[in-house]
Design a protein around this nucleic acid. Sequence first.
DNA 1: ACTCGACCTGAAAT
DNA 2: AATTTCAGGTCGA
Length: 307
Amino acid sequence: MTLITINLNKYYIFNLEYCMSSGQVFGWTKVDKRWYGFLNSVPIRISQEENKLIINSNKEMLEEDIIHFFSLNDDMEEINGKIEVNDVMKKIIKLYSGIRILRQNPIDTIIEFICTQNKNIPAIKKIITKLSEKYGEEAKIGKIKFFSLPNIEKLADSSLKELLETGLGYRAKYLLCAAKKILEDKTYIDRIRNMNYSDALHAMTSGDMKLNGVGLKVADCILLYGFHKLEAFPIDVWVLRAYPIVLKEFIDKNVHDEICFRKLKLDRRKYLFMGNIARKVFGEYAGYAQLYIYMASRSLFGYSKKV
DNA sequence: ACTCGACCTGAAAT
DNA sequence: AATTTCAGGTCGA
């Protein structure tokens, strides 16, 4: 049994809603302002009331694990200071202040982000929900029933035909292969963990550690959200749209034109090039800059299409 | 190396 | 109402 109340006054501004709704995590369910999900295989319910974080569970759960998961101790003064490179950044940092990059289980993020390619957010959530209902652990807190993300054994044990029932489409074979590969290679996760960002990015997207269906963008998401490698700067269509606005004084005209007038699609070379500019400008916390930019871009360019 | 179309699926736009 | 487009991209020719 667990009932933990965390006093948020001890930490930099924190906003649970921003953390959970920023496209970095898909495995949690929201019902009446409370979030239900699994943390270290333990089902928990969490909600925020002003300066308190309230956590319930039927099982044991440590406060330090919650603090770790939500990165409450990330030094946001330092991080925000480093990435506040111009007025635009200053503005959106203030606007979305309270966000954190969570420390999810790496395997969870591999599963989640393989599902994200070429899908919109509602569709991603739907797929992940179906996957969880079909392969995940069931839990109940209060009257709410919810599911964990699938573990890798269940997925590897599954079949293509079965996986397709969740609406995964062509991503099903990617997920199945990834599950089998990671299950078979027990050192895979630790080896990625121990690499620096750049080596890890290339390992996941090429060579014998490559996961099929994981390109640069998905790998960046996994490295940022699953391994907390904060130099990762995932460039999706939203970040790409905002990029020339946010970074306008840091890119020359050629780059600007290329981004603005070409199709919103990046090949490997351009992706790495743009990411490297971002890393040069924002430094070791580029990933946090990306999250702010992503939030701002979604609210600016769309998403509020009467959902 | 670079470009280009195909790709599951389903919700939203036309 | 039927059809096309588009979506947190990636792969292979």
